[in-house]
Nucleic acid binder design. Structure first.
Lengths: 204, 204, 204, 204
DNA sequence: AATGAATGAGCATTCATTCAT
DNA sequence: TATGAATGAATGCTCATTCAT
């Protein structure tokens, strides 16, 4: 990831340092919580001076936002790319679930920041996460509607509500995984969630 | 609950003051966020002196815990009572969903504290919410297993996972409702969630 | 001590309670230090309510003053009485030393308050202890001057300075005894101090 | 001491700032008492921001300890140096007395902190002053024993007790000088104390 | 760009004192 | 007299941010 930009970059050092700070922040936030994390901790973890942090981020809060923005952006971009190659809406949902849980499962620290630290602020959830989250939810919703048009998903369901239920289920999987003392694989939960959501709990 | 002690209470003032502080804290936490709320704000809102808060709570954090504990306790107790009078597992799930959303929908401030403020601390989520939350999830899980035994729910599903998916869906409904600019009724979402969960999204 | 006044006292309860508070304060101050002692601690130790303390003392500080005043008063009164029966100035000095160390050695808690807690305030030492201490020092000085007149003490010495040296020596004995981990008898030090002061350190 | 680092010091600012805070603290403690002194007062007096104090000292208490440690250290070091050049034990005692009173007499604020503020805490006197004070007392005691070996001091006296009496006398001189309204020179008291201690009060 | 010393606003908590009962 | 719930002023310390170098 770093090597890709290291050639011919006009500001290679800057990019690396910003990246280092961001990764350090994820680690620090995950271990101490956002409010208990000091900017000095992040700086030390990133191997830079306190003041240097402010050359790349306007404030401690902006670091948190950047973590969110970058991750959601990547997730959506990656999601769109992969979904474009799939036509079956059910398979698309499955791919969303897999990507979601893979991403969270791959980096426990990032997952903690996402599932816990990012939730503790109404202001943040309202103002900042709004755009990115809405887009993510819209992606799911569009897939549902696609399935409805295709006749594979029940037309009488409200697609937006289904999208929320789907997201809520995945989100809870991730949160539970983080808080669980028992260590288990997160990704395999995707198919179970999908089975429940697609086929329902009721015996036919 | 309040009516019971309103007559001939020996220490009505004490009870009322603790209650007043708790309710004030819910309001203050909901509007400013836990970390941005000052104990002095809570005291003012409750109409008591700063120091009085510490006659009833050991610390600012304990106030947050008390809000959580009391609410979950009431919810579980109320849940058990109502579920005891129902035999159909599907109807039981519906009742859980209704109680969950009714409780959150009835007090927006409390809902904000629950859906947002209580989430922002790994420590809190790990240490404190653990017991109460586990019990709540266990209640749902037991209902699922009951339904599986009765043959109305698919036996091949992992009851615990179903419980998480169910909780996750309800939780997301509540969070979305809080953050939504549009004001809509939360309780009616219960039946939509139930329909999706029980019957699935797929067209048969 | 309490039994003596319990008969025919018009306010026996009051006297006992004031006494109880004073004794409780000595214990509490000795163990926690004046500034770290809470009025509530004293009240609990004395077996009365917090507010009751203020029926007998104007403030926490006044309690400290009362301890000082009462003890010095008793010491001086007892000292005068005993010294009146002695004519030899050397024997008088010895009696002062004995009384001083006996009083401190008899009640370690009181000694701690006297040697340590009462010293930590310029204001106290200046304003309050002034009178009592000056009188005590005057008692010693008078004895020195008496000895000088009688020709048993060197006339060329400044009596006031001798009094300070004498007091300083006794005071240091008391302080050292309190802070010492090793438990030894304080009173026997009187004769050693006296020997040094009267006869000097130099070999003749 | 200060001149040594005034040239070519790499961190003159740091040194000066720590020094400034220490000197400010002595002034503030002397005038208001330790417990009544606010860290903000010290900072203002030192011409730095409140937070800066904590860049050089861990806590308000550590400032007090530093004052004690530095002063005792200097006193002992200076004492050893000067005593090394003297052979007559009597002259050595005189030098100790002079150094003791000179140091206290040279800086009234420092003297107040030493004679009053540092005394008001059993904990401090036990834990912290222990080492330094013991060493100082040991210095005096060694001189006494030297004199006893040399035959100029009475062999039957307990050297440790003599040391305490000597210290107690000097200590009382200093305390009295501080509390006295009348302004007089402290240093000249040394010879009077010495005369009393060495030759005794009794007429031969 | 990088540093890290310096800043100073901000706050939970304590506790002496009061006073209604 | 006695109580103890209530008060609210008071403060040590933290830490995000700045800025001179």
């Amino acid at each position: 990831m770093r090597s890709a930009r290291s050639m011919n970059s006009l500001r290679p050092v800057v990019v690396d340092k910003r990246e280092a700070i961001l990764r350090a922040a994820i680690r620090v936030f995950a271990h101490n919580g956002y409010f208990n994390s000091k900017v000095a901790d992040i700086a030390r973890e990133a191997g830079v001076a306190d003041g240097t942090v402010y050359l790349y981020f306007k404030s401690k809060e902006e670091i948190l936002h950047s973590i969110f923005d970058r991750t959601v952006e990547e997730a959506i971009s990656e999601g769109r790319k992969q979904l474009g190659q799939i036509s079956d809406p059910r398979e698309k949902l499955r791919r969303i679930a897999l990507l979601h849980l893979e991403r969270m499962g791959a980096d426990r620290d990032l997952a903690v920041v996402f599932q816990v630290e990012l939730r503790g602020s109404t202001k943040f959830m309202e103002e900042f996460s709004a755009a990115g989250f809405a887009e993510y939810l819209g992606l799911i919703r569009a897939t549902i509607e696609e399935g409805q048009s295709a006749g594979v998903f029940r037309r009488e369901l409200n697609a937006k509500v289904v999208a929320k239920v789907f997201f809520g289920a995945l989100d809870e999987m991730a949160t539970n995984w983080i808080l669980s003392k028992r260590r288990y694989k997160l990704v395999p939960m995707a198919d179970q969630v999908l089975d429940i959501l697609l086929n329902g709990v009721s015996e036919k």
